[in-house]
Nucleic acid binder design. Structure first.
Length: 318
DNA sequence: CGGCATACCTGCAAGC
DNA sequence: TGCTTGCAGGTATGCC
């Protein structure tokens, strides 16, 4: 489920509960998620202080004072719920982020935050897909839930990060300095695949997923079916398309993170109306509906590219 | 290497 | 109501 903005939002949500705190207990309820969890996973985490959290692509990196890193990937359905410590445990924050989930997503939607806190405490870790529960020395309980179990965690020495198979081949951070028009054009120059597939390739740009690729292509007015290499060609101004695309990628991601941040804030507020996860997408999931570009008479269409849904407007995306 | 299908796993909505 | 089918935001793997 989560793409870069959701992972960033989850990371920010976890920080208050984890940063500077010591992991007191880890309850591991199964041996594997997508992959087997590391040997002696719980034992190796217990007693460790969390130095800081970091996001790299769609991974959350928990830096431990032992010098080890707990790397977490949420897969499609991974989510965290934080149950704060303290005598009453009120005001639970759900640190998951699902940009497409509507108001009907889950029983907690209908509950005011104080009710949610109580609800969450009473049912903490009782869902059958609650796989791992971290208990911190500040009293916070951090529950990892993953219905489809496509998520995974690993634990390794910090200095091995660059050699780790999950990270070795990751491409540039789209919000970092590494992503700019010339660089993107250079990466795409020899790629014969569709632009959509190119952007989904984590070895080129790391952190984009199906939704934000569709949205970024829409904003850049580029067809997902265009060949990736055509980004680099000079017609239409040198690097013009690549510049447009990098700008669109950054915009889309930044806005989504800002929206995620505000939903987290809202969630902790006292108002029961959450407006939670009310992202609106221009094209994603809008097949058959009118294109939102002012003056465009197009209709959003859905096609399948390498087995995945693509949404775009064939009129304004060329 | 590219491109594609398949696999992993469960839940949900739609269709019959 | 109940069954089947297809679909879902992730990536790894194997085959041609």
């Amino acid at each position: 489920m989560p793409e870069l903005p959701e992972v960033e939002t989850v990371k920010r949500g976890l920080e208050p509960a984890m940063q500077g705190a010591v992991i007191d207990a880890v309850e591991q309820r199964r041996a594997d998620l997508r992959f087997p969890l590391p040997e002696r996973f719980a034992q190796r985490l217990c007693g460790r202080k969390v130095e800081r959290l970091e996001r790299r692509a769609k991974y959350i990196l928990v830096h431990l004072c032992s010098g080890e890193i707990l790397a977490i990937h949420l897969g499609m359905s991974g989510r965290f719920t934080i149950l704060p410590g303290g005598p009453h445990g009120l005001g639970a924050i759900a640190a998951h982020a699902d940009p497409s989930a509507g108001p009907s997503d889950g029983v907690t939607e209908a509950l005011a935050p104080h009710e949610l806190g109580r609800f969450a405490l009473e049912t903490a870790g009782t869902d059958k897909h609650d796989h791992i529960v971290f208990t911190m020395n500040n009293g916070a309980r951090i529950v990892y839930n993953d219905v489809r179990r496509f998520g995974y965690m690993d634990l390794f020495r910090g200095d091995a990060l660059g050699d780790h198979p999950m990270f070795r081949e990751l491409g540039v951070e789209p919000l970092g300095n590494g992503l700019n028009g010339p660089h993107l054009a250079a990466l795409a120059r020899n790629r014969m695949c569709d632009l959509k597939a190119f952007l989904l390739d984590q070895k080129a740009v790391a952190g984009l997923g199906n939704i934000y690729v569709c949205e970024a292509l829409y904003r850049a007015r580029l067809s997902p079916r265009r060949k990736a290499a055509s980004l680099a060609c000079r017609s239409g101004g040198p690097g013009a398309r690549a510049e447009r695309l990098t700008g669109a990628i950054r915009e889309v991601l930044r806005e989504a993170i800002a929206a995620g941040g505000s939903t987290l804030k809202d969630y902790a507020a006292t108002d029961g109306e959450l407006g939670y996860f009310q992202h609106s997408f221009a094209v994603y999931g809008r097949a058959g509906q009118p294109c939102r570009t002012p003056g465009c008479k197009g209709v959003v269409q859905r096609i399948v590219q390498s087995g995945r849904s693509t949404f775009f407007c064939g009129l304004c995306q060329r």
